[in-house]
Each structure stands twice: as C-alpha cells, then as structure tokens.
Amino acid sequence: MDDTRYPTSLGMSDADSITLLGKDLAGELMGQVSFGELAFWLVSMRRPTPGELRLFEATLVALADHGFTLSAIAARLTYFSAPESVQGAIAAGILGGGSRFLGVTEDTARFLASALAAQPEPPPADQPGWDRLATEVLVQHREARRGPVPGLGHPVHKTEEPRNPVLLRIACEEDRYGSHLELFTAIGRVSAQVFGRHLPLNGAGMCGAVLADLGLPVELLRGFALLARTAGLLGQLAEERRAPIANQVYASVDRHVRYVDPDAQTEQCDPGETAPPPPTDLP
C-alpha cells in the first residue's frame, strides 16, 4: 500500500466535502468571505483584520486597470487573433509584467525591504530621520550605478500620482503606515535633491510599500499585481467584444511600417533627432 503523503494547509476534497484553509468551503467561506480576503488569507495563512482588508483591496483596485496599457493592448490583439482562447489573451496581457510595468510593485518592495534590512540601527523616529536615511539609500544606489530606483517616476503623472494620497490616507486611517511606507515617502521627498530633478512616486511602487507593510512576502508581491490586472484584462476583453479596436491597432501599425536598412540604424529616427533612451520611469 502506498503511504505517500503530500502535506498542505490549503485545499483538499473528498466525496462529500471541500476544505479550504481548514474551513468547510461551502458552509463557512462561500458568501461569507470576499475574494480579496481569501487571496490575502491563502498567502499569509492568517485572516486579515478589517483594516488590513480595506487597505489590501484598495491596492488591488489601484492596480486593476489603467486603460490602453501594454498589457491591455497585448490581450486585445491576442483575443482578436484567437477569439476562442480567453486564457491565451489574458496570459498575453500578464506575461509582460516586469521591471517596467506591473513588476514594479514587487521590485519596489524588495528595494525598500533590502534597504531597511541593511540598517544597523532601529528605524528612525521622526521625519528628518527618515529623510536622512532615504538620502543615504539613494546616494548609495546612484553611486553603485544600479539603474532606476524602483517606484520612482511616472511617464504620465509628472507632479503627483493620483492613487498615492488615497493609499496613504487609508494606511493612516487603518494604522498600517509602517517602515516601508515611511522610507518610500521619504524617498519621494528627497529624490530631487539627490538626482537634481523631480520624479514623483508612482502608484505601483506605493502599492508595493503598502503590501510589504501588510506583512505579505515581498517575493510574491508581483503575483498580487497580476491578480489585480487579470480582473482588468477580463474587462478589456469584454469591451473588445462590445467595441473592438484590435484590428484598428493592427492596421494602423501595418500601414506605418517602413523598411530600414540594418546598416543604417540611425535612419530609424527622423532627420535631426537622436534615438531616445529606453524609458526608466514607468509604473
């Protein structure tokens, strides 16, 4: 007899019941636990408090959709090409979650957590102390030539990200304004002094600081960004069915293609222009 066992604290089922997180799925969870609460619970193995849940779900809403982003365009084009594959279209939309889009949530949290872990002293007790720490962190980052600071800068919102004040307000109201948010907001205050120009904190980075302060593992925070964006992509596909634009996007690109000799790469730009550097301040 095979006595192999595969332990789990998540879900299992038998002929008569389904158990999830030690609870009866049908009798104790369905209709009584929100999807956001369940997502938090599945990862952290603890049920969030009402305040934690409010802040957590605010981050999911903040990350769900921003209009015709790269992920939305990729999903719509794939759905146009293969309308029988909803899963393929959604996958196409989330596969690009990386250092410039969506992945910034996790990258920012990792950056903040690493900076905090490297400090030999307890966290600062006041704003000037956080500002000094943020300055040290940014100067070290700049001198080490590690590239853009995760969560700093936005291609559209050049002054202030509209999502940030709301997330900060909810974090304060729910007493979940922790060390990651303290350091991140301090970075926003001192970055112009270090880099010589104003770069606003972006919302994806703010979500990373929020999720880290909620105690969720920073190594999995990209997954929460993808979870939120999946809902947005489903909405994009629903709209593509109602008001399709994918064929128009494809046709527009196709009409504007022009051949460039591979030995004359500079010809890719208009006369008198230089090729722009790759963007470094995307959310």
Score class of each variant (00 low, 15 high):
residue 1 M to N: 14
residue 159 T to C: 15
residue 190 V to A: 05
residue 110 R to Q: 13
residue 177 Y to W: 13
residue 244 P to M: 04
residue 279 P to W: 09
residue 71 S to R: 05
residue 255 R to K: 15
residue 103 G to S: 03
residue 124 P to M: 09
residue 184 F to V: 14
residue 230 T to W: 00
residue 232 G to Y: 11
residue 136 E to L: 03
residue 86 V to I: 09
residue 171 A to C: 02
residue 224 F to A: 01
residue 232 G to Q: 04
residue 79 Y to W: 14
residue 156 V to A: 07
residue 32 Q to R: 05
residue 114 S to A: 14
residue 41 W to F: 08
residue 127 Q to E: 12
residue 196 G to E: 00
residue 243 A to F: 07
residue 181 L to W: 00
residue 161 E to K: 09
residue 13 S to E: 03
residue 31 G to K: 05
residue 221 L to W: 10
residue 89 A to G: 10
residue 199 L to H: 06
residue 249 V to R: 06
residue 4 T to N: 14
residue 85 S to A: 12
residue 178 G to D: 05
residue 278 P to K: 13
residue 165 P to N: 04
residue 86 V to G: 12
residue 246 A to P: 01
residue 62 A to C: 04
residue 283 P to H: 11
residue 182 E to R: 15
residue 147 G to T: 08
residue 244 P to K: 02
residue 136 E to K: 03
residue 47 R to P: 01
residue 261 D to V: 07
residue 162 P to H: 03
residue 52 E to K: 09
residue 202 N to D: 13
residue 186 A to Y: 03
residue 107 D to C: 12
residue 98 G to I: 01
residue 124 P to D: 00
residue 227 L to C: 15
residue 14 D to H: 00
residue 195 F to H: 04
residue 270 D to P: 08
residue 116 L to E: 04
residue 55 L to W: 02
residue 57 E to D: 15
residue 102 L to A: 14
residue 46 R to Y: 07
residue 23 K to H: 15
residue 117 A to C: 08
residue 106 E to K: 13
residue 184 F to P: 06
residue 89 A to I: 00
residue 13 S to W: 07
residue 195 F to C: 14
residue 75 A to V: 06
residue 119 Q to H: 04
